[in-house]
Nucleic acid binder design. Structure first.
Lengths: 232, 232
DNA sequence: GCGTAAGTTATGTACATACATAATGAAGCA
DNA sequence: TGCTTCATTATGTATGTACATAACTTACGC
């Protein structure tokens, strides 16, 4: 039976689901599977490579393909800008820059951003609104060493996230998601009660290894959720 | 210059980062790039395919390869079982099953689980501890139609998440992450104040389209965070 | 002018072949 | 025994070729 890599992949997935090769087991080699499916080895290779990319199996030279068991559920998360999230909900987006200034990094900031103390930064505080209601409170620092253009940029019209995305669209990022209690100034900005739950997303990004920005994005906890749907 | 697909991919990424092809632009075709890099078309194909998999470009037949701009940041999220998270932190894991019983789905449950009203379910409430401290409060329903073995299974020794993972290791899943205020019973179980922030992870899974389980995992907000690090 | 058929084009996939690379074990030697 | 060397093996990658497929363009018939 002449087969494409998709069919091979699906067939292998079905067998894995059926428990034919339990976690920890070594699957048959590519040549053997190619023979069984009556296809070229490259075809099997591609099928298994995709399974490996998805974290279902692990491939090692000479060892073969091992079925992974205790791996966690994997999901592909996509994080959008506030504007996209708001218009995606069918609401009207608005943006306000609450403050923007320059400063030099103190010890705490320097440590969080992994930069030397005294580095020049741009500090911003912005509010994103959905249908006139506070949607996200953004606190952001931008390293002027990595992004000197940010020193003179005026962020009253354009959110810094979108501006950065346009300037440096491809960078590495680290995201941290937490739940926290709103402190008084945050609660006031977001028009919620002090101590009420906040959804907190912190994002740090790098550009070729250099720290670019650190953002803390706060959402009122009762109005926000992150949804990830993903066939394993 | 004889090149491998990794080099081609990196070279293309560099040009994309340099803004050579702005978002919305159509990149040169595979044949042209193959000629430029002095390699086979398939090599360029693989390089660009990986960029497409990562959400950086979009490929369409006859149209060519379009550079995406407004896409959100992507990250690969891995969600582990409570046990793995706890031992990963270097703490001692413990598990307690607070209650387990059978019931039939009422209207609300049926809707949330996307099953007919009256379906047989197993309902569980469990507590996961880290160093004797409450770490996660789990509320779970298991559809007996999809997992009949769960009807008689005793979950006092093994957490249902791990048991299910062993039984049905590969299923589709939907995750929802929220921040919420702890209600009195939850707060008591987790030894925290009523109204304090909770990190809420809800997970629904399917097995070949059939709903399998719905879990609500609550973490004290001040002691939990989800970290995702990912080069774009 | 309008709809349909045929042609064009870029990506998508399959295959045979060849060689590269990492990991493992066995043979050979001090 | 302990070490190096070499053969083995499964995966990793590159290439030329061929054909498939989707989508756009043009030509044709009416």
């Amino acid at each position: 039976m002449k087969t494409g890599y998709r069919e091979v992949k699906q067939a292998l997935l079905n067998r894995l689901r059926a428990g034919e090769w339990p976690p920890g087991a070594i699957m048959p080699g590519e040549v053997q599977l190619a023979e069984e499916f009556a296809c070229a080895r490259v075809t099997v290779n591609r099928a298994i490579r995709e399974l490996a990319d998805e974290g279902i199996v692990r491939r090692r030279r000479r060892r073969g393909t091992e079925v992974l068991g205790d791996r966690g559920r994997q999901a592909r998360l996509t994080l959008h800008q506030a504007r996209q999230q708001v218009v995606g909900r069918g609401q009207v987006y608005a943006y306000r820059c609450l403050s923007q200034r320059r400063l030099v990094a103190g010890a705490g900031l320097a440590q969080r951003l992994e930069i030397p103390t005294g580095s020049a930064l741009r500090a911003l505080r912005c509010l994103h609104l959905a249908d006139e209601q506070p949607f996200q409170l953004e606190t952001r620092w931008i390293c002027l060493k990595a992004v000197p253009e940010a020193a003179e940029q005026d962020f009253t019209a354009e959110p810094p996230g979108e501006w950065l995305m346009r300037l440096k669209p491809l960078s590495e990022a680290e995201h941290r998601i937490q739940a926290a209690a709103a402190r008084p100034p945050e609660a006031a900005r977001l028009q919620m009660a002090t101590g009420a739950p906040l959804f907190v997303l912190q994002r740090r990004t790098w550009w070729r290894g250099d720290p670019v920005t650190w953002a803390r994005l706060l959402h009122p906890g009762d109005a926000y959720e992150l949804v990830v749907r993903d066939g394993v």
